[in-house]
Structure formats: C-alpha cells, structure tokens
C-alpha cells in the first residue's frame, strides 16, 4: 500500500476509480431497487394471507403508529388482523407477521418475514414444526420457553426472539382493540 509522501497522482487515480464505481453502482441500485421493494411488498401480502388462512380479502389499516391488515372471508366478515413485530434473535432482529383472531383472542398463524439467524440452526425457526405450535394459542397463555413453547435445540435465542415478537404483536393489537371495536 501507499507509503511515505502522497503524490497527487495517486489520489487522482483512486478518486477516479471510486467515482466510476459510484456511477456504475447507482445504475445497478436504480435497476434492482424496485425489484427488491416488490419482493418485500409481495412477501408482506403473501404473509398476510399465510397467517390468516381463511381470509380472501385483506385491507391495509394504519391507525396512528400501528400498521396492520384486516382479513375478511368471502362473505365480508372480519376474520382477524395481521400485524408485524420484531424480536431479538441470536444474530439480530427477527421480523414476524402474526395473524390474530381478536374475538376469540387466539393466534391464527405465524410467518417469519426476515431474520439473520445461523443457517441450519436458528434459521429453523422458519420450519412449520416450530411455527405450528403457536397456532391456536390463546392470548392469556404464558408463552414461557421450555414450558409453554418447545424450543429448537441449540437455538434458544432464536426461539425466544420469535416468541417475543408474537407477544409484542399481541400487546400492540390489544392496545388498538383494547377498548373494543
């Protein structure tokens, strides 16, 4: 690497290279950004339908700070709501979409939107065996790891992250629906 006195020529060469790559990357960025955003949006829409299995139509609701989706069946009856929350896993945040039946106070479905857990270990939180245990749980259950929730062996932190996110989503939903709607 460069040692001793710095010649302007060196700085110029390096600057030119950085400028070229900046221009190139801004094109790549513009080209891929909409596709990546589309993936995220369609992943969201799919996730809403996945966590509200009986829903046929969804409606986007933004109430104050809270953003959620309402799910209706074919006849237009409200089945439940779907909303996101985040828990802290082993490597970072775990974003979870949770479907909730506010009338019976039950969990309808869970979908992991985003995580960066260790592949093959913490990443097993996305497997159905793990997620299915949350379906049908009542809001009043303890959600305690080991007792109430089966933990993925070797991935306690990841399992806790998901559980936290679900509890967080329930709390947020209860705040909105707390007064009854």
């Amino acid at each position: 690497m460069a040692k001793g006195k710095i010649e302007p020529r060196l700085v110029i060469v390096l600057t030119i290279i950085v400028m070229c790559s900046a221009v190139l990357l801004s094109f790549v960025h513009q080209w891929t950004e909409p596709i990546i955003a589309e993936h995220a949006a369609s992943a969201d829409a799919e996730a809403v339908l996945a966590v509200l299995p009986e829903a046929e139509e969804t409606e986007f609701v933004s109430a104050g700070d809270l953003i959620y989706y309402k799910g209706f069946d074919g006849a237009g009856n409200l089945i439940g709501i779907a909303l996101q929350d985040e828990g802290r896993g082993y490597e970072g945040g775990i974003r979870v979409m949770v479907g909730l039946d506010m009338e019976d106070e039950k969990v309808l479905g869970i979908d992991i939107l985003e995580h960066s857990e260790t592949p093959g270990l913490g990443s097993r939180i996305t497997e159905e065996d793990f997620l299915d245990q949350f379906v049908g749980k009542s809001f009043s259950d303890s959600f305690e790891l080991q007792n109430d929730i089966d933990v993925i062996s070797g991935a306690t932190a990841s399992s806790r992250g998901v559980t936290e996110a679900i509890k967080g989503a329930i709390d947020k939903a209860l705040e909105v629906y707390g007064g009854g709607e």
Partner: peptide
Amino acid sequence: GIEFMRYIAFILVISSFVQ
C-alpha cells in the same frame, strides 16, 4: 441516500485504519 456505496466506504475506512 447513497447506501449503495456502503461496502466501498467501509472497506476504505478499514484499510486506512490498518495502515
């Protein structure tokens, strides 16, 4: 809003510090 320059910026900072 130039997050696409993130990797280049980071690696330049790191190599300067190593130096």
